[in-house]
Design a protein around this nucleic acid. Sequence first.
DNA 1: CGGTATCCGCCGAGATACTG
DNA 2: CAGTATCTCGGCGGATACCG
Lengths: 107, 107
Amino acid sequence: MKKNIQKAYCAVDYAFQRIGGKYKGRILWVLREGCLRYGELNRAVVGITPKMLTQTLKELEADKLIIRKVYLEVPPKVEYSLTDTGMELIPFISQMRSWGEKRMSAS
Amino acid sequence: MKKNIQKAYCAVDYAFQRIGGKYKGRILWVLREGCLRYGELNRAVVGITPKMLTQTLKELEADKLIIRKVYLEVPPKVEYSLTDTGMELIPFISQMRSWGEKRMSAS
DNA sequence: CGGTATCCGCCGAGATACTG
DNA sequence: CAGTATCTCGGCGGATACCG
């Protein structure tokens, strides 16, 4: 029922809405080698505030790119990790980083 | 050094600031097979307004991802095409589209 | 044809403080 | 430790009209 041409272009939009923004790419990237706790993410993603971290994590979780695992302990412990879908994006982000690094040093 | 660590993460930022936004990816994508005129772009990128088209084209040109070529004719003629740097991004955008299409049909 | 010029709403993001 | 709660602001993007 959808117009094929529009759908084709919207796929770019769709993808960028999910990994665009200021922190999504960086969060996915630091999670590439395994799960991290909230506080660890807060330190790994330099400059992010708790508000933006929580907000971004919720969006990534809603898009099924990361998994939020809560341990019912005291003190509280929450771990975040990539889903299979999220891992599919790592090669792409890796290439973007390479491109960005090359461009940054060139200019 | 701290500088290196920050630079590493910022490369993701750097790249996304250049191809993020609502239309940059789509404009680069439609230019992948050759140059297009302003009016052609306006029709190819469905839904974009002249204001956003002009604004986005200027940003892409400033980042040296596209080239703006003006023909001194009447009526006026302006053609936009990818630079080598811009062409380097096409494989990434292609991957993004594939990923986006897969995800869109999955959900 | 290939743009500008306004006006404006929305929301991503920062700063700061507080909580179970 | 792992988050909320407000307040604020810039700017992205939409709508519309006009120009050389």
